[in-house]
Amino acid sequence: MLYFITKRILQSILTVFGVVTVAFFLVRLSGDPSLLLLSADATQEDIAAIRDAMGLNRPIWVQYLEFIGNALQGDFGNSIRQNSPAMSLVLERVPATLELALTSFAVGIGLALILGTIMRITRKVWLREAIMWIALARQAFPVFSFGLLMILVFSVGLGWLPSLGRGSWQHLVLPALTLGSYELALYLRLFNASLATEQRQDYVRTAYAKGQGRLQVIFQHMLPNALLPIVTVAGINLGLLLGGAVVTETVFSWPGVGRLIVQSVSQRDFPVIIAGVFLLSLIFVVINLIVDLLYSVLDPRVRF
């Protein structure tokens, strides 16, 4: 176990390092922040002067080594656009992103468990079909259009909920529903398939043979076992929710990390991009590690 954890942590560090290095060279090679910083009527001399001041005229590997050296000490440099440390700009947005990701995650898993269990319990075929159809229809909708649809219905039409920004719980409802319901169909299918597999297991037959009721068998015996594959997928999805909520953050003008990174890419604000990518890859890797460890909790047979 200890060996496994140590190995995974070392792997994780290597992964994060690789991601940051790739990100560094990709953004450097794709554009020049000095030109985007200046007004359109800047002269060639203005450009040369600002490039010099920003240290962009030095060879890229020198810049890279310097960056790695500083990053190892926790210094990701100052934002080019905003005169403050890049990492603190990213960290400022983390609460907003966490809030949205965790709520969406809870919405997605919660809905999947409730609806999935209903589908298993009910004997009405039409209800089962209806739930699956709704979930599939939802997933067929791109996040952007679904978000707009939610805004048109709940903000413009009914006037119940705000369509932009962050603040009260009301602000959270539409983005969390939009983001959280996206993976619903996937969770449902997975959950159903895994319940169906459990159903054929010996221990289920034994439970029935002991005279236990259908609901008791489902809730007490099958459900905990059926959760395993969901945990795997959900863990990866949580990572995606943290970093991949860009579209949702854009539709609902949510001030999260994803939007900051996209904005920084369009301004070639290197330090902020890299700080953001570093943080997100770190979170992703850590979540994966936790998922692996959760496995052994949920299924004592899994040993490393």
Binding site: F144, L148, I151, L152, S155, V156, G159, P162, S163, L164, G165, T250, V251, F252, S253, R259, Q263
Partner: peptide, 18 residues
């Protein structure tokens, strides 16, 4: 001043009165 990156969301924000 409210930054609203998506064009369509700027329009819906005007429609909803926000």
């Amino acid at each position: 001043f409210r930054p609203i990156p998506a064009e369509a969301s700027r329009a819906t924000a005007l429609m909803s009165g926000e």
